[in-house]
């Protein structure tokens, strides 16, 4: 499904702020894979995800989805295949527009836009049903501006939007990190529901090891711009947080010193 072949990325090359973010990373996802990604700050998790989404070009290597080489595609062109939820709840929705309008935009992801009415009344029932599945009471607030919603509601809505037009690949970039623990679990449950029900190929970054273990059928750990651990199937099911810690120490040759990685 998704093939990442030997990609590298260095930010600000040749300056004092040079930062090698990814070094020859390769990754292959099968259709229906739900992969959780963990790693400390600066490990390259977000860079990997943004490279796939096309936020910036990679220095070398190829990225393809379903055998289409998308390496040179712009961010908006890749959106035809990719649904995304960002860490910042503000990033995934247009605050000044109504819930209905946001959903209408998302339902046309990857399609050529026309001069048809954007949010026709005929789609309201569909939108209401979708919102009902979130169980957040948003189905009665189609005409509310998204800016009035809480962070958790906005992330749930973004999740709905990212998956409305069936994506080939769903990218979740620490999408629960900015939420309080209870809301984070709620959004994660919704995530699990949607991904499992629809068999979406998904890449999810999390800083919470328990979440990484609880979700998905495969787990990768990144360190210093490389993938250092990649477990799937029964091996992943039997993993514990302590296993992860010792794997990290073995693979990276250093003590786990980052608090953010220890959360959970």
């Amino acid at each position: 499904m998704l093939t990442v072949n030997n990609i590298s990325k260095t930010f600000n090359p040749g300056t004092i702020t040079e930062k090698i973010a990814l070094t020859n990373v390769s990754l292959e996802l099968k259709a229906g894979d739900f992969v959780t990604v963990i790693g400390g700050n600066g490990a390259g998790k977000s860079t990997l995800m943004n490279s796939i989404a096309g936020t910036f070009p990679v220095d070398n290597g190829q990225i393809s989805i379903d055998n289409n080489d998308i390496t040179k595609w712009s961010e908006h062109k890749r959106a035809k295949y990719i649904g995304r939820v960002f860490q910042d709840p503000m990033m995934g929705t247009a605050a000044g527009m109504m819930i209905e309008e946001n959903l209408a935009i998302a339902s046309r992801r990857g399609k050529t836009l026309s001069l048809r009415w954007s949010a026709p009344k005929s789609e309201r029932n569909k939108f209401r049903e979708l919102l009902q599945s979130l169980n957040l009471g948003l189905e009665d607030r189609l005409e509310s501006k998204v800016g009035l919603l809480s962070g958790g509601q906005r992330q749930a809505l973004t999740l709905l939007m990212a998956t409305m037009a069936q994506p080939k690949l769903l990218l979740l970039d620490e999408h629960t990190a900015a939420l309080d623990p209870k809301t984070a679990q709620q959004v994660l449950n919704i995530t699990n529901d949607i991904v499992n029900k629809r068999q979406l190929t998904t890449l999810m970054i999390t800083h919470n090891m328990r979440d990484a273990l609880r979700c998905g059928n495969r787990l990768i750990m990144m360190f210093n711009g490389q993938i250092i651990v990649d477990v799937s199937g029964d091996d992943k099911k039997n993993l514990t947080v302590n296993d992860l810690l010792s794997m990290f120490e073995k693979a990276s040759g250093s003590e786990m010193a980052n608090d953010r990685m220890l959360l959970g």
């Binding site: 960002f86 995934g92 000044g96 935009i105 046309r108 048809r116």
Partner: peptide
């Protein structure tokens, strides 16, 4: 009328949040 159409809505969304509308496949 125009700002209520798909293209018009995309223009409005660009002003509110260019990240969001790019992630939804629109060339900002």
């Amino acid at each position: 009328w125009f700002f209520g159409t798909e293209i018009g809505a995309a223009i409005r969304a660009t002003g509110y949040n260019p990240h969001m509308i790019r992630a939804n496949g629109v060339n900002t």
